[in-house]
């Protein structure tokens, strides 16, 4: 009998072929990510890393193969809405906040239809925004927030229903270096507080260096770490540098 806990994320021979272009964006990928692990997924443009992330977020359907999240196959979900709202939190490069809603409302939309009451959703959204350092910015709409602040709102929204997995697609791609560093520090802190499993797609070696493990992709396949660019391995995350407070 195997008493080992199931990996937080597991893919088995996962393949995605785009029907219109016949491109094998993800080609037989099998990987395991343990609970509480932070993994960075890197690779050149078109390597299939975002496609893999979208498959894991159930935003797209694989052509073949399996995805198991906390031991459960996504194919066994009759309704993926619950999976999207409760099991994973998704963060995009362009934050994708609704411009006509304020920060608090943008977080609350993730709780619509989940059975969370009106007051509780408002309280929880305010607490989440406070935890990402935006307690005083809850009433502001996205156009009034900086890029880094918008991404923090998106992070708060991703955490709204207490997922165990955070999937982030280039979350620092549209931020300057300081804001990117600050967002990475936030990722590190919330992972510690919530024991989150994080899978983060990035081009940035410095951002990749923040992860426990770096997975490289090329042409839709995972490649050996040894074949990847060595740059990331020599970088140090901001909270490990001398003089860092490890907080935002």
């Amino acid at each position: 009998m195997n008493d080992q806990p199931a990996p937080a994320i597991e893919t088995r021979h996962l393949t995605k072929i785009f029907q219109d272009s016949h491109v094998r964006a993800v080609d037989g990928v099998s990987l395991e990510i343990g609970a509480g692990e932070w993994v960075a997924l890197t690779g050149p443009s078109g390597s299939g890393k975002s496609t893999l992330l979208h498959l894991l977020a159930a935003l797209d359907e694989p052509t073949s193969g399996d995805i198991l999240v906390n031991g459960r196959n996504l194919k066994s979900y009759g309704n993926l809405n619950h999976y999207r709202s409760h099991d994973v939190g998704l963060i995009f490069q362009l934050h994708n906040l609704l411009p006509n809603l304020n920060a608090l409302q943008n977080v609350r939309i993730a709780m619509v239809g989940t059975g969370v009451g009106r007051r509780e959703s408002a309280t929880r959204a305010a607490e989440l925004l406070a935890s990402v350092g935006l307690a005083a910015r809850t009433k502001l709409r996205p156009p009034a927030l900086s890029g880094g602040e918008r991404q923090r709102v998106a992070i708060a929204r991703a955490l709204a229903n207490g997922p165990s997995i955070l999937l982030a697609d280039e979350p620092t791609g549209s931020l300057d270096a300081a804001a990117a560093e600050s967002v990475m520090e936030l990722f590190n802190r919330i992972r510690g507080e919530r024991n989150l499993t994080i899978l983060l797609v990035t081009h940035d070696p410095l951002v990749a260096a923040c992860a426990d493990r770096i997975i490289h992709m090329r042409d839709g396949r995972l490649i050996d770490e040894a074949d990847a660019t060595p740059a990331a391995r020599n970088l140090v995350p901001p909270w490990k540098r001398a003089g860092s407070q490890g907080a935002i």
Binding site: R84, S85, L90, N96, L98, T114, A160
Partner: peptide, 16 residues
């Protein structure tokens, strides 16, 4: 359109 995509990605159902 993008808004509906976001709402679906955070778990909103088609009916909603």
């Amino acid at each position: 359109t993008r808004e509906f995509g976001v709402l679906r990605s955070v778990g909103w159902s088609r009916i909603r």
